[in-house]
Amino acid sequence: MELPQSAHTSRPWRIHEITPDFRVYDVWALPTPGGPDDFPRLIRNFAGGDTSENSSRIARLLFAIRWKLGALLGWDDREKGLGSRVPTLRDRLPQDLRDGPAGPEFDRLPFTSVYLRDDEWAAEMANRTCHGVMHISWVPDGSGGYRGQMAVLVKPNGLFGKAYMALIGPFRHLIVYPPLMRDIGRQWSETTPSR
């Protein structure tokens, strides 16, 4: 379920310290009910994700087109990404976060972990269009349990990046996120141990 930005901005997440120049684009309650110790499983599920596994053929097609365009137009070239066009957010981390774990490596998605805490994890990606952050957190669900929450923070790269983000907005909300949330819920159910 999509949430208001305040569901992310009102919480005392450490990500706020290092992304004051980023805008919150999306906040979602994840269909991942669990207990206080289930956050590591959620992170493993995300790190192992792949856009080609989306259950929606239309979403898979959109991702395939985006990756193909990125390759043809050089949007995703290394010199347009982290450590080249933009410095990694790890350079902004306060010492306690820098000394802690960054988080898992991604199997197939173009993200790099920034930091990991007991209830929040941040990963970043950068290309010709933007510098983006995926913030995954573990929050009380209001009924004694917990659930995941995802926030997407973005710093567009100039006018091109702003236009790109505006163009893909309807696709994200109408075509990409709904099946993604269903897939996350299905995967969560399949990996939930029997109690």
Rank of each mutant, 00 (worst) to 15 (best):
N127K: 07
P101T: 10
E124M: 04
H173V: 06
D119Q: 10
I18L: 10
S84V: 05
P140M: 01
L69F: 05
L159P: 03
S84E: 09
W28T: 11
L109F: 03
R90D: 09
R172M: 15
W75A: 10
V133H: 00
G185Y: 02
I65A: 10
M134Q: 10
D118F: 09
G142Y: 08
W28C: 10
R60Q: 06
R172N: 15
A122V: 15
V133T: 04
H173G: 14
R117V: 00
Y146F: 15
A64R: 13
L82R: 08
R182A: 15
V27P: 00
G34V: 09
D99V: 06
L116I: 07
T19N: 05
Y146D: 05
A166D: 10
P94E: 02
V139Q: 11
S52V: 03
L3C: 01
T88V: 01
V24A: 05
R66G: 02
D183P: 09
I65H: 01
N157D: 15
G142F: 08
L89F: 05
D50V: 00
R117S: 08
F111I: 08
V154Y: 05
G158T: 14
S143R: 15
G48F: 03
R182P: 03
A64P: 03
S143V: 15
Y115P: 05
V176H: 00
R78N: 02
Y115Q: 06
S84M: 05
A126H: 07
H173E: 14
G74S: 04
A122Y: 02
Y177L: 08
W121Y: 04
R66Y: 05
D183N: 10
Q149N: 03
A29G: 12
A123F: 07
L82G: 01
L73P: 01
I43N: 03
S10K: 11
L89W: 04
W75H: 08
R57G: 11
R23N: 13
L72I: 14
L97Y: 04
L159G: 08
V176C: 00
L42N: 04
A126K: 07
W67V: 04
P101R: 13
G132L: 11
P193Y: 04
N45T: 11
G34S: 03
T129H: 13
P4T: 13
M181T: 03
R147D: 02
R66E: 08
E105S: 10
L3Q: 09
P170F: 00
D107V: 12
F63H: 09
F106R: 00
G34N: 06
A122D: 10
P140A: 04
P40F: 09
F106K: 00
G132D: 03
G144W: 08
G70S: 02
G103K: 08
D37W: 12
F171V: 09
P193K: 08
H135S: 10
P36K: 14
V86E: 04
L89P: 02
L153K: 02
R117Q: 07
A64I: 06
K68L: 14
T129A: 13
R186N: 03
N127V: 08
Q5M: 12
P20G: 09
F106M: 06
D91G: 00
T9A: 14
A151C: 05
L174R: 11
L61F: 11
R60N: 02
L180W: 13
H16I: 06
